[in-house]
Design a protein around this nucleic acid. Structure first.
Length: 590
RNA sequence: GUGCGUGUAGCUCAGCGGAUAGAGCGUUCGCCUCCGGAGCGAAAGGCCGAGGGUUCGAUCCCCUCCACGCACACCA
């Protein structure tokens, strides 16, 4: 179905035309003076010059044409040449009923379904998730859900960092810790054990220790480098260890992402694409797209239209090793073969902007993707502490993601202590859900591209524009609906009918809800979850005002009561859809 | 140095060509015999970083400058 603004705009354009003016002037937007009207059109002022006429004369003529339309309670021309539109209550109610009856509440979704790959998460094998991974996971998951809701066929790929020097570091550190393992016995023949030689907690200690050691101990660093090369050339012992690292690590990462309610369709990694790299590099050189420069293989990606100089994309080091860009390019080839995406979305730290420009240009230049394939990059800002600097633990270290979640869950649990008497286990599960909501909403309500200040106290507050407050609103509505049913009331789908608003607060709530399809439209186009957050808060706010001013369950007029309850149902449904789009779960009670 | 990004209320952030620039927190006043007060009503608080320009109209577009952040081939 068409969005409300589109429907109104259509009418206004017709009116412009009927009055003898260019219908293109009839652009309509939500009023920025809600005290005066609900929608506005400023086209008369834009057209004043063209027609050599005072703008208010044009607006007057258009308003006159709109006068008889039952959709409007008022269509008036004001001062310099504004066209102020107020909907008739019946028209507004009709709009809401159409929305309520629609599967996606009036959101059309994408005109034709696309195949979309979302590359997010970006975890590294053998390293615990830390705060740096939070944004990619949370934003990526939300974008993925938004794309799905738009009707697209979406694949999320965690794209693990599983092939770098870290593997060599772990192998060599393990050699020193457990020299008796068969992997380090040069005499060993036959298969290696199936059991991993370490647990996840051991593995998590091995890596940081090795990494720190390599910085001081040049000999150790050289060994690690050597081991990495051996792994990359297929050495059986190194490969066996690598498989253990991957199995242990992947299992743990999956568990951690699951607990964040972040799920990937694919668990690919850089290693998957290694076999096709040599062929790809050769192909690029053969076709003259890549060339050797200072010993390295590069692709020139500068374009004439550039105002600045974009440095060439480096795809092979002078020692022959592949790089970040190389594996990203090979991954594109791989995805083209297996998934044929119409749209690629990369969710990564905004400091990687140049890298993605280079990769995208190379992919296009080499013809790896079709010209119409969209290559998109969502660069997100840093999560800062209250001091405005990147978020750290108290002693200056990197905070593990699970500790961060635990902290915010604690904060939530404390605030919930005085509320409902929930049984212990439900309390725990609820605190967890609310905590995650606090964390995710706190993140997603900011524009992704900007840095933001992480303030657990503020995010976990149950007041104001926060995740917990949104959840509270949903839970509260559910509680009212439940109460109504427990008192014998019924509200089957065919009984639901939202009536014309009978008060200002009700009308405001109606108008707010009616914007959902447009909000979704912009959220998808801009890949901007914060638009959804904004909608949610406005809705929750409008609901609270409505709720305090209108008695619902004690309303004597039965039809009106059902109308209120139908409206509440729609509020609840829309908010629930939105929480789901953000990857937030709603508890039963809180 | 070159380029990109950011600068909006005390703090955290929306808005980004229109009429009186919004919200949350914080502050100050009101409102709990009432469907979950985790709320509602009100007040105070802004040369929208500075200066030019384009426009009937600029927080928004263009130019210059200032401040901060970030990136600039063999890390990912």
């Amino acid at each position: 179905m068409k969005t409300l603004t589109e429907k109104i705009e259509e009418k206004v354009k017709q009116a412009f035309e009927a009055a003898g003016y260019d219908p293109g002037l009839g652009h309509v937007s939500v009023s920025n003076r809600p005290d005066l009207c609900e929608f506005q059109c400023n086209g008369a002022m834009a057209g004043a010059k063209k027609y050599h006429k005072a703008p208010f004369l044009i607006a007057d003529a258009v308003a006159e044409k709109l006068a008889g339309d039952p959709a409007f309670a008022k269509a008036e021309s004001v001062k310099p040449g504004f066209l102020n539109l107020t909907l008739s209550p019946a028209f507004l109610a009709q709009e809401l009923n159409e929305m309520a009856g629609d599967e996606k509440f009036g959101y059309r979704g994408e005109d034709k379904p696309r195949r979309v790959v979302v590359d997010y998460g970006g975890a590294n094998a053998a390293k615990p998730l830390h705060v740096g991974h939070l944004r990619s996971a949370v934003i990526g998951e939300s974008i993925k859900r938004i794309e799905k809701y738009a009707g697209n066929e979406v694949t999320g790929d965690v794209h693990l960092g599983d092939w770098g020097l870290q593997m060599g570091l772990i192998i060599e550190q393990l050699r020193d810790l457990k020299p008796d393992l068969p992997y380090f016995d040069p005499e060993h023949t036959g298969p290696y054990p199936d059991e991993p030689p370490f647990s996840i907690s051991e593995l998590e200690k091995i890596y940081p220790a090795a990494s720190a050691r390599a910085k001081k101990d040049a000999a150790f660093a050289a060994r690690a480098h050597e081991a990495t090369l051996k792994l990359q050339s297929g050495d059986p012992a190194c490969t066996a260890i690598w498989h253990h690292i991957m199995n242990v690590s992947r299992k743990d990462l999956k568990k951690n992402y699951d607990s964040l309610n972040v799920h990937f369709e694919l668990w690919k990694g850089e290693s998957d694409v290694q076999p096709i790299i040599p062929g790809m590099v050769k192909d690029l050189q053969d076709r003259g797209i890549a060339h050797v420069s200072e010993g390295a293989v590069v692709v020139d990606v500068a374009q004439d239209s550039d105002k600045i100089e974009i440095p060439p994309c480096l795809i092979q080091k002078s020692d022959g090793a592949a790089l970040y860009a190389t594996s990203d390019l090979a991954t594109i080839l791989d995805r083209e073969e297996k998934l044929r995406p119409d749209r690629y979305i990369y969710v990564a730290d905004k400091r990687q902007a140049l890298h993605f420009t280079q990769v995208f240009r190379t992919a296009r230049k080499a013809g790896f993707v079709k010209p119409e394939t969209e290559l998109l990059y969502v660069g997100f800002g840093t999560m800062n502490g209250k001091d405005g600097k990147p978020f750290k633990t108290r002693d200056g270290g990197v905070m593990r993601l699970e500790n961060l979640v635990a902290d915010i869950t604690d904060a939530v649990r404390q605030k919930m202590a005085g509320s409902d008497d929930l049984p212990e286990d439900e309390m725990e599960a609820t605190a967890r859900k609310v905590g995650l909501a606090a964390l995710k909403y706190g993140d997603l309500s900011n524009q992704a591209s900007k840095d933001y200040v992480f303030d657990p106290e503020r995010f976990s507050s149950f007041e104001g524009n926060t995740g917990p407050y949104i959840l509270y609103t949903i839970v509260r509505i559910n509680s009212i609906l439940k109460r109504y049913r427990s008192e014998g009331g019924t509200l089957e789908k065919d009984e639901r009918r939202i009536g014309a608003p009978g008060s200002e607060v009700e009308k405001d709530l109606d108008l707010c809800l009616s914007r959902f399809p447009e909000v979704m439209e912009t959220a998808r186009q801009e890949l901007a979850p914060h638009r959804i957050c904004q909608f949610m808060y406005e809705t929750a706010d409008a609901f609270s005002k409505f709720y305090t001013h209108v008695k619902i369950l004690t309303e004597p007029d039965e039809a009106r009561k059902k109308s209120y309850l139908s409206l509440l149902t729609l509020v609840r449904d829309l908010l629930t859809v939105c929480t789901d789009l953000l990857g937030i779960e709603v508890p039963e009670r809180m």
